[in-house]
Design a binder for these strands. Sequence first.
DNA 1: CTGAAAGCGCTAACAC
DNA 2: GTGTTAGCGCTTTCAG
Lengths: 339, 339
Amino acid sequence: MNIKEIAKKSEVSITTVSRVLNNPEMVSEETKNRVLTVIEELNYTPNWFARNLQNSKTNLIGMLVPDMLEASNMEMAKGVEKIARSKKNSVILCDTDFDKNTELEYINTLIDRKIDGLILASSQIDEKDAIKLKEREVPFVLIGKSAFCQQENIVYTNYDTAAEEAVDYLIKTGRKRIALILTQYPVLDSQEKLEGYKRALHKNMMKVDLDIIFKTGNNIEGGFEAASKLLESKEVPDAFFIATDTMAFGAIERIKQSGLTPDKLAVIGFDDLPAGAVMEPKLTTVTKPSYRMGLTAARLLFDIIEEPDLNKEAQAIMLQSRLKIRKSCGNKERLKEIW
Amino acid sequence: MNIKEIAKKSEVSITTVSRVLNNPEMVSEETKNRVLTVIEELNYTPNWFARNLQNSKTNLIGMLVPDMLEASNMEMAKGVEKIARSKKNSVILCDTDFDKNTELEYINTLIDRKIDGLILASSQIDEKDAIKLKEREVPFVLIGKSAFCQQENIVYTNYDTAAEEAVDYLIKTGRKRIALILTQYPVLDSQEKLEGYKRALHKNMMKVDLDIIFKTGNNIEGGFEAASKLLESKEVPDAFFIATDTMAFGAIERIKQSGLTPDKLAVIGFDDLPAGAVMEPKLTTVTKPSYRMGLTAARLLFDIIEEPDLNKEAQAIMLQSRLKIRKSCGNKERLKEIW
DNA sequence: CTGAAAGCGCTAACAC
DNA sequence: GTGTTAGCGCTTTCAG
């Protein structure tokens, strides 16, 4: 089924059919209706490739995330999709599984597919890769800082200062020995949280003890095991700052088994997963604007796609993360802040 | 950058360049190397549209889910993507937001984009829509039963018998009044769970009481509110069977506030979210093979795409869900079964 | 082993 | 308002 057949059946030229589809105002009512009827009848849709062979706009954008099972990634994806849809675009979503080669491979595949733009969440690409990307002239936006975030379009959140705020809060409420549990993945998010942690300690004249900084799998078991090791160490910490709520769930389970309560051992997570508001004790955490980051990144991307000239200057947009205090910090004095 | 330029620079015809790319064995080593060097140098990739204008295979499949934030949907998506990637395909993932019109709209967009196949999770399309789909000659596979699952390719799990098993277990362990909390979404999953619930009651000579069957939002608050109403009713149930773990989390929170313990009020959820294994009490639930359903559906789809003739007969593949007993049922007699 | 040339289905100048 | 025609970038006969 192609434009030619429609033209024949409606007894017009293919140009007219094309016009009915693309510039209906140029065609007389009568002809238009005749053509439309035939189109309807034959259930015709124009061939997308032939069309795009000229346009070379695909209305397709790509989005890479390290893990589709992480709720915050999917909130971003949902934000991206919402904008994409309003622009009549579709999103190819790819899961890089935290692997840089997989990421680069996907980027190539997507560019070969002539996507109009690319959104990279927690990307591992470096400056060299970015230069290549630019040579290929594919607009792209990063979500979350990257190894080379200097001069790129990027939407990020303050992992570092949010972490700093969290640790600072622990110190202000009297905690003396604060352990840090990070994910073992090679994304920069971890790095930033570590920096925030260190800054808070330094600011408060406490020293960083590598014995109580752990990296583990970003899952419940990982948190459980890290907590185990910390609880069995000589000098048991009186607070855990944990880089993801998921790991925090495991840690809290282990802590409960040990009989310790929040006033003896405080826990702060990161991500604000819904389950954290339901567990016992409710988890203090850092809430980050994932959905809005997705929306913002997609808007920025489409701005660039639609008006490349107006958007030559790279933009860095920061959306705020903030501490959400609940009972897992066990701080009686500031009960009013409890959410 | 196009094939013509490559041809010119390598001093061969465009045909030869095309052959280097598609049938390298037909070209002499020398010419091939020369062309490849130029391709490398100029960073050329063939235009995907021009290519597909002939093939009309896009290596692109679509997948529709009702909600990208639901973990089980994303496990399916991850399974689908894994297979797609091994077949050098990409996946366009769309979130229908439980809306049938959105679903149909996406289906149309995707078909216009000439995707090679379609996977529909918890679809709301009816027989008429399916017929239209077939007219368009797009292979598709359903995940989860659908309103018209008679003669379609489908991968599903036994929501009904799994629900029946769960309720049966509650009855066998002495529960007399079992409430049911369902999601309010119009997907068939709910319907099936309801049927299983009814079957278990009938089998055990108990009658269905509509006063203790609720539909609510599939989130923590929804579960919380439904539990509230049930706890405030005249005849408080001694068990809740809840169609999703997410709602169960909210319900358990509410139950804890009321001071009731699992021996007085048992709870069974559905989905086996990781957080259920960490909360107090650990949640008895039904675990379903989401990831494997994704893998299986994708494999089936590619079988159909690759060998349409061998796969004219629709297949229905069932993967088993099963009850996972934990403490939220508070059944002391069968403690060994506790996971 | 290589090349010329005919399309794939559509859009957009350019005529009428 | 409508039609003719020349491509878009590639693959694929068909000749050599």
